[in-house]
Write a protein that binds this DNA or RNA. Structure first.
Length: 284
DNA sequence: GCCATAACCTGGGGGC
DNA sequence: TGCCCCCAGGTTATGG
C-alpha cells in the first residue's frame, strides 16, 4: 500500500521521466479512475492535450503534476493499489491499465496509470497561489515537509478527544501516515494505538514525530534506490522496506525488542499490530 | 463542530 | 476443482 515514502519515490520518478514533456493524447480506459474529475474522462483528456508538464510535487499521499503554462495541475492519488508507470509505447497493456498519457517527443515512452482496486485516480484541478490543487487544501503538511509545524500538531493532539492512531490517520492533522507506518512509529515509540491524544505531553509528541520521520526516511532511503530505469517504481508493496518492518504484519512473531509474541487486533475495519508488553493498554 | 463508522472496490488466499 | 467468504485500507459521506 503506497504511503508517503512510496509516493515520494513515484514523485521522483515522474520528475525524471515525465516533467517537461508535452501531452498529445490521453486515453481514459476506466471512468472510475477519473471520478474526481467531475466533468468526465473526455473533458480530462481534452484539457490535458497540448500542455507541458511541470515539476512533480507531493503533499502526504497526494502528488500532482502542474501544467507549466496554466494555473492547474493533474492530481494523482494511488489509493491502495495504484501505480504510475513509464513504459515503452509498444509494451503490452497491463491487465488493470486505467489511463494512458502519450507525449509529443520521440522518447518512445508513455505514462500509464494502473490500478487494480480503483481506489486511486487522476483529475485536473485549479491551483491556489502557492501551487496547491484547490481540492486538497484541507490536507495537512506531512512530517517530512520542512514547514510542518510540530507545535501545531501537538496542540491539535491536545485538543482532540480521540486516540493516537486515529489521529495519525487523520490527514487534516498530519498527512502521509497510513496503517503501516502508524503501527511502525507507535511500536518504536512504545505507545499503544488507543492512547488518548489528550494525554500527550510535548516531549512525548516530539518523540513520536521523531519516530515517524525516522521510519519514513528509512523506507525512503531503500525505496529510492529501486527505480533507476524507465520503470517508475510504484508498486505500493513497500518493496524492499517490507522486510524491515518491526510491527506491521508480524502477528505471533517475537517483538524485536522484548521477544513477546506480537499481536494483531481488528481496528476500524483493518488491523493494528503491536507488542502487548512494550505497548501497554492505557488505563481507564 | 467534532467524532465514529460505513461504504467504496477487486483479487488473492484459506476453508470446505 | 470450485465456491464462498474474509481480508487488504485511504478517503469521503453520513449519522450521532
Amino acid at each position: 500500500m503506497p504511503e508517503l515514502p512510496e509516493v515520494e519515490v513515484v514523485r521522483r520518478g515522474l520528475e525524471s521521466w515525465v516533467s517537461g514533456r508535452v501531452v498529445t493524447e490521453v486515453d481514459v480506459l476506466h471512468p472510475r479512475a477519473v471520478r474526481r474529475h467531475v466533468a468526465g474522462g473526455p473533458d480530462f483528456a481534452a484539457r490535458l492535450k497540448g500542455h507541458r508538464i511541470g515539476e512533480a510535487r507531493r503533499r502526504g499521499k497526494y502528488l500532482w503534476l502542474p501544467l507549466a503554462d496554466s494555473p492547474s495541475a493533474i492530481l494523482a492519488h494511488l489509493g491502495m493499489s495504484g501505480q504510475l508507470l513509464v513504459q515503452p509505447e509498444d509494451a503490452a497493456d497491463e491487465k488493470h491499465l486505467r489511463i494512458r498519457v502519450r507525449f509529443e517527443d520521440d522518447l518512445g515512452t508513455e505514462l500509464r496509470f494502473v490500478d487494480q482496486r480503483t481506489f486511486g485516480g487522476l483529475s485536473l484541478h485549479g491551483t491556489t497561489p502557492d501551487g496547491l490543487p484547490d481540492v486538497i487544501a484541507h490536507i495537512a503538511r506531512d512530517p517530512l515537509d520542512p514547514a510542518f509545524d510540530d507545535e501545531a500538531f501537538h496542540q491539535g493532539l491536545r485538543r482532540s478527544r480521540t486516540t493516537i492512531k486515529r489521529a495519525l490517520l487523520n490527514q487534516s492533522l498530519i498527512s502521509g501516515v497510513g496503517n503501516i507506518y502508524a503501527d511502525e512509529a507507535l511500536w518504536r515509540a512504545k505507545l499503544h494505538y488507543e492512547r488518548p491524544t489528550a494525554t500527550f505531553t510535548r516531549p512525548r509528541t516530539t518523540e513520536l514525530l521523531g519516530h515517524i520521520r525516522d521510519v519514513m526516511n528509512a523506507a525512503l532511503a531503500v525505496g529510492g534506490t529501486s527505480f533507476d530505469s524507465l520503470y517508475v517504481n510504484v508498486n505500493g508493496e513497500s518493496g524492499y522496506f517490507e522486510r524491515s518492518l518491526d510491527a506491521y504484519g508480524r502477528e505471533g512473531e517475537p517483538c524485536r525488542r522484548c521477544g513477546t509474541p506480537m499481536r494483531r487486533r481488528p481496528w476500524m475495519n483493518r488491523s493494528s499490530y503491536f507488542c502487548p508488553r512494550c505497548q501497554r493498554v492505557p488505563r481507564g
